[in-house]
Amino acid sequence: MKQVVVLSGKGGTGKTSLTAALVRLAGRCVAVDADVDAANLALLMPGQDDPWRTFTAGRRARIDPDLCVGCMRCSEECPFKAIRMGAAWIPVVDPLACEGCGICKQWCTPGAIRFEGHEAGVWTVRRTVWGPLVHAALHVGEDNSGKLVAQVRKEGARLGSAENIDLVLVDGPPGIGCPVHAAIGGADLVVAITEPGVAAAHDLERLLDLARWFHVPAAIVLNKADLHPAASADLRFMAAARGVPVLVDLPFLPAVPRALARGRCLLEVEGLQEPLDACWAGIQRMLAGAPAPAEECRPAEPT
C-alpha cells in the first residue's frame, strides 16, 4: 500500500482541491483528511457518513466543590494558569488552558481534584463512490491535533488493508508543526502544492526541509503558475537545486473558485483535465520508483 500526502507549508495553495481531483483520477483509493482543525475534503466528496466516533486525548482537571476548602493552592501552582477563583470561593478550571499535567492534584490536600478523559474531537468514515474517506473534526481550541491526525491515518491504512485498496491519499494540514509531522511520517511521497510568490516559496522550502528530515521524497505542483511567471521560474530553480521534480504547472483560472463555490471538482474546469492527468501520471511514476524525467529537473535561468 502506498501513502501519498498532499502538503503545502503555506495555506490556501490548493491542497484540498488537488486531493479531490487525485481521488477521482485514482478511481479507487482511501482518502484521509488530515487537516483536522479545518477539514474541507468532505465538501468535495459527497457520500454517506458512518456514525461519528469520539476521539479522546489527554485529560482535564475537575474540582469537586464539596471537598474543596478554597485554599487556592491549585491556582498558585498551576503552570498553565488554568485555575482561577470562581463564584462562592470555589476555584474553576479553564478547559482550554488546562493541559492535564496533574500538578494541582499533587498539591490538593483535601483531595478535591480528579482527572477525566477529555473528548478532543470526533471522526468518522464516509462511503463515497471513489472509496472510503476518513475525516475528523478537532473541537475548537484543542491541542492534540497531531494525535487525531495519527488516528485518521491509522484508520485510513487499516481500511486500505481490509478492503484491498493499495493507495491512501492524505489531504494534509498547513504549516510544518506537530500535525504535519503526524501527516508526513511513514508516507511514501509528499506532493507539495505551491504558488509563485515570496511567501509560498519561503514556506515550501521549510516544508521540503521537513520532508527531508523525515526521509520522504517530495514532488512539486506549481499552482497558478502564470500569475507571476518570474516567481514561478525562481521556484523551479530552487526545486532543481534541491533535486525535487516539478510535476506540473496549473494555470490561474477564475473559473476554479467559481467551480469550488458550486461544489465542483477541478477536473470539471475547462483546461485543467490535461495538466491534472499529467500530475497523476507523474505521481504514479514516482510511486513506482522511476526517476523524474530529466527535463523536469533542468534548472531554469534565475531571474
Binding site: G12, D37, A38, G141, S145, P174, P257
Partner: peptide
C-alpha cells in the same frame, strides 16, 4: 496562524477584536 487549534487560541487570548479573513467558497 491558520486553524482553530491551540496555536490560534494562544494568539486570541486577551485580544480586543478578531479580524477573520475568509473567501467566498464553501471551504
Amino acid at each position: 496562524p491558520p486553524g482553530t487549534s491551540c496555536p490560534a487560541v494562544a494568539t486570541l487570548r486577551g485580544a480586543d477584536i478578531a479580524v477573520l479573513v475568509t473567501e467566498p467558497t464553501p471551504f
